[in-house]
Deep mutational scan, measured.
Amino acid sequence: MGFKLLSKLLVYLTASIMAIASPLAFSVDSSGEYPTVSEIPVGEVRLYQIADGVWSHIATQSFDGAVYPSNGLIVRDGDELLLIDTAWGAKNTAALLAEIEKQIGLPVTRAVSTHFHDDRVGGVDVLRAAGVATYASPSTRRLAEVEGNEIPTHSLEGLSSSGDAVRFGPVELFYPGAAHSTDNLIVYVPSASVLYGGCAIYELSRTSAGNVADADLAEWPTSIERIQQHYPEAQFVIPGHGLPGGLDLLKHTTNVVKAHTNRSVVE
């Protein structure tokens, strides 16, 4: 069995187990497998329904001669939608809004960016022009300005110390501490036991640490421990890039980060 097929099978099995364990909360999309990078042309966006009122959005972007996937989250909030992270750029984010209108038909009224990198804030200006209120932590807003990236308009308070959590509509926002970046936030959907790890969490097929220019490698494993301790009931975990899975993604990420750190020390 090929690795790609095995990865998709694991996603399907995880979703099936969740649907059985929580039949009222989960209505997993039966329309197909989780979209992969090879299936999404740059400039297009796919939506994948995880649970009743919960979707991931998947886009792709060219970077350094390669094409990478990027995940975000959409959560229903009454007759409105909360968006977590842009679709990595203005063109993708405009396509995301169009796809949401086509498939869901509810307005996106608020959006949260989970850290300051372009795959999370690139497209904020498109959201703002569409009347979406954009939010991020003060740290993310400051770092985005320093980096020359787009800056969300509103500040999220109460997320300055490791372990801080605040309720934001249908989700809980959690600051686990520094990891992929010093400002990275985690998003949890309690009604569906869905954990969105953003770039602080890796997919299972990833074996290298990737972009760690703004990471705190020493603190990252401790931050992941905080996530595990705060959300032990999480059933569906979405990484910032690639295929979702279960809580095993947290341990896998820790292993990859520690291996990278150990290699760096040896070198």
Score class of each variant (00 low, 15 high):
4 K>C: 07
5 L>V: 15
9 L>A: 14
9 L>D: 13
22 S>G: 14
22 S>D: 15
23 P>H: 15
23 P>V: 10
26 F>R: 14
27 S>D: 10
34 Y>R: 15
37 V>F: 15
38 S>Y: 09
39 E>T: 12
47 L>Q: 05
48 Y>W: 12
52 D>P: 09
53 G>F: 08
54 V>G: 02
58 I>P: 03
58 I>K: 06
61 Q>K: 09
62 S>R: 09
64 D>K: 07
67 V>H: 15
67 V>M: 15
69 P>R: 15
70 S>R: 00
71 N>T: 08
73 L>H: 03
80 E>I: 07
82 L>I: 10
83 L>Y: 02
84 I>T: 02
88 W>M: 02
91 K>E: 15
93 T>S: 06
95 A>Y: 15
96 L>M: 08
96 L>W: 00
97 L>I: 07
99 E>W: 07
104 I>W: 00
105 G>S: 10
108 V>Y: 02
111 A>W: 04
114 T>W: 00
116 F>C: 03
118 D>S: 07
120 R>H: 06
120 R>M: 02
121 V>S: 00
122 G>H: 08
125 D>S: 09
126 V>T: 08
127 L>V: 03
128 R>F: 12
130 A>W: 10
131 G>I: 06
131 G>N: 11
132 V>T: 07
137 S>D: 02
137 S>V: 05
138 P>C: 03
140 T>A: 05
141 R>P: 05
141 R>N: 08
142 R>N: 14
146 V>F: 13
151 I>D: 04
152 P>E: 00
152 P>T: 04
154 H>A: 09
158 G>L: 07
159 L>H: 06
159 L>E: 03
160 S>Q: 13
165 A>D: 08
169 G>I: 05
178 A>M: 08
182 T>A: 11
185 L>S: 04
192 A>K: 11
194 V>F: 04
194 V>K: 01
196 Y>R: 02
199 C>R: 02
202 Y>P: 05
205 S>H: 12
208 S>I: 10
210 G>Q: 06
211 N>K: 08
214 D>A: 06
217 L>N: 03
218 A>V: 12
221 P>I: 11
223 S>L: 02
223 S>D: 02
226 R>Q: 08
230 H>A: 13
235 Q>E: 13
237 V>L: 11
240 G>I: 06
244 P>A: 10
249 L>M: 13
249 L>D: 01
250 L>M: 09
250 L>F: 08
255 N>S: 09
256 V>H: 04
258 K>Y: 08
261 T>F: 09
263 R>M: 15
263 R>I: 13
264 S>P: 10
264 S>D: 12
265 V>L: 12
